[in-house]
Design a protein around this nucleic acid. Structure first.
Lengths: 238, 238
DNA sequence: TAGTGGTCTAGACCACTCC
DNA sequence: GAGTGGTCTAGACCACTAA
């Protein structure tokens, strides 16, 4: 399957950006169009992509500036995969599967999955980075779609890799909600923190390209080891 | 100052969307181009805008589907203004200015503002919605830029409105970091919560169109009253 | 197969930055 | 004034959805 030109171009440009200093300018859009033999529209699509992913900032009349947001701890729009996040930070992610079970739908899950599923696979996992426990996660995925999932794989591969490679389920978007809470007893034990600590509470719903919900996860993160960074662009009339 | 066509179009479409049911389809891109007498490119720019703002989802071969993410409690990329957020939710935001002072730069602020400022205005505010305290905020803005700010205005108007209207400083992007912590004594008192509660900790850095940092704010939010929702689109090769 | 969104082209003019 | 990104046009073909 051939990638679109602008995605190919954005990947090429990322390689180039990685060799550049923060603050440097990319060649102008017209130059890039010439260099890569594509139209300026295609160049702009590629640069749009790099901008939302936090690699560059564009400034009217000036150029496209390399920034280092993309190196930031937990990057923006790009990521909702713990595994990918940690790899990007040069750390070694690992996952311990604490338990897995098949459960019936309840009101909460019916709400999230729009009553479309009767049974779910429930996974409780501990996510660590370089051996340090960072997040305690409870995930729910529809049994009907994923009953063939290999439980042993969950320890080795990212859930999104498994979705994509084994089930051809491509993630289109994820919605996340952030809150805070005191840690639960079980999570405190697993995260190895004091039972009266605060944790960052994350609720994530993942949607495939057909707009079906394919995953719901509740995470508790140790705030001293994990925080979440995001960039908001101003899309409104200004 | 005339707005671009695609922004005007996106505003018109938002009005239309608000009268539509969730799940309905907008007219096709080609139809919209015809109806509003613009090119399809312009229509697509407008729809891109609506998509990142969470008003629609587009599906290849199908159409642009109205969704209700934009109604969600605290919306995605669009918002980093408490005032605007609350108004969008139909609630009445209010701000109590607890203290204001002028302080010297310190290591932390130098880091954030890249050593560009010597003095800062420090504002401590309590943000409420319909009279209920929700967030305790400490903000730092460069004295050199904003020394003429009218302190009384801060109670009445959003900081971003003041930036824009009185200082012609338009926000281009904001970077936010989320964490969790136990509440501080002072914040517990102001938020009227138990002193051993957990709070959602938010660190926000705001950048203008010249890529200068114009604000740094640390917020503590009562997680039972305030949570933060965001959407990640998948921009990666898929 | 008809209609939709996704990608791409070639070209134009505007608004901004910097010299 | 020269060069940059921002907006906009008219048109083409591809890939996907649904009947």
């Amino acid at each position: 399957m051939e990638q679109s030109l602008y995605i190919q171009l954005s990947e090429k440009l990322i390689e180039k950006i990685k060799e550049m200093e923060v603050g440097q300018l990319l060649p102008s859009e017209r130059k890039l169009a010439e260099i890569y033999s594509v139209s300026r529209t295609t160049v702009r699509l590629a640069l749009d992509n790099l901008e939302v992913r936090g690699y560059i900032l564009r400034q009217h009349g000036k150029g496209s500036i390399v920034v280092d947001y993309h190196k930031s701890l937990i990057n923006l729009s790009e990521m909702y995969s713990f595994t990918e996040q940690m790899k990007a930070l040069g750390q070694e992610p690992s996952t311990k599967l604490i338990s897995h079970s098949i459960i019936d739908a309840n009101d909460k899950l019916n709400d999230i999955f729009l009553n479309s599923e009767k049974k779910f696979i429930k996974l409780i996992r501990l996510r660590s980075s370089d051996g340090v426990p960072m997040m305690y996660e409870e995930s729910f995925i529809p049994f009907s779609k994923f009953h063939d999932i290999k439980i042993n794989d969950i320890k080795e591969r990212s859930l999104y890799d498994i979705f994509k490679e084994d089930f051809d389920e491509v993630v289109k978007l994820a919605q996340e909600e952030f809150s805070a809470d005191l840690v639960s007893k079980e999570a405190a034990k697993q995260l190895d923190i004091s039972p009266d600590s605060a944790v960052l509470q994350i609720y994530r719903t993942t949607v495939n390209i057909k707009n079906e919900t394919i995953e719901y996860t509740e995470s508790k993160a140790d705030p001293s080891k994990f925080s979440y960074r995001t960039i908001h662009h101003n899309h409104i009339e200004s």
